[in-house]
Amino acid sequence: MAGKQINPMLKMALELGPIILFFAGYLKLRDQSFTIGGTAYDGFIVVTAAFVPLIALTTFILWRLTGHLSKMQVATVILVTVFGGLSVWLNDDRFFKMKPTMIYLLFGGLLGFGLLRGQSYLKYVMEEVLPLQDEGWMKLTQRLTAFFLSLAILNEVIWRTQSTDTWVYFKTFGLTAAVFLFFMTQAGVLSKYALEDSGEDV
């Protein structure tokens, strides 16, 4: 069921605000170390500890305002809490860096499982806002599955081979830009397989 409409700028602030604050906080604290309870934590871990409750709070506010959260939003906040919490608890930034990998593997795996069954799970989530012919849904789902799995691999390569600075920039800007560009490049599929109001094929 669709949620209540709220101001688009407020919605964007709630969705992107935590990511922007994480990035700003990391830039400010990345070279600092904090001793808490006799244990030294670097700036990345401290910022991660702040990011986890922040994204949970903004997601809760979004749910209260709209009465609805997408499955992607729910899965994201759960994985942020689990992997961010592990990073803070074990004082090991690798868990949080693995979080995007897990998110994209989850989404890509679910879409891929649907494709193996001859179904587009993407259609079930987006058909109300994006009416397409069945063939269009299958093509878009195939491409999005490959895209998500590619991002999972790319994230693993970046965090395992590059500096934390590089990974933070990649996570904040690279992944966001990649998702935006992907959907921009699918304009041909969306146009070719769009359903007319009359229900006739394009």
Rank of each mutant, 00 (worst) to 15 (best):
V47Y: 05
E196H: 13
L115E: 07
K171N: 05
F170K: 01
A50R: 04
S163V: 08
F83Y: 15
L154Q: 11
D134R: 12
L110F: 15
Y121A: 06
A13I: 11
L149M: 15
I55H: 14
T141H: 06
L65P: 07
G43N: 08
G118R: 08
T58I: 10
G85I: 06
V47R: 03
A2V: 07
Q73L: 05
N155L: 10
R64E: 12
F107E: 04
G136D: 01
E15G: 10
T101V: 14
Y26Q: 01
G114R: 04
G136Y: 02
I20T: 05
T172K: 01
S163W: 10
L149T: 12
W159G: 03
A146N: 07
Q119H: 12
G118V: 06
W63Y: 15
P100W: 00
I6F: 05
V179R: 01
T58Y: 13
F95K: 02
L27F: 03
I36C: 04
L57T: 15
T59M: 12
F113A: 15
G188W: 13
F34T: 08
V47E: 10
A24C: 11
L190A: 01
L21V: 07
L29P: 02
T145R: 02
M98C: 07
L195P: 07
D92G: 03
D31Y: 06
F60P: 09
P131T: 12
F183P: 00
L122I: 13
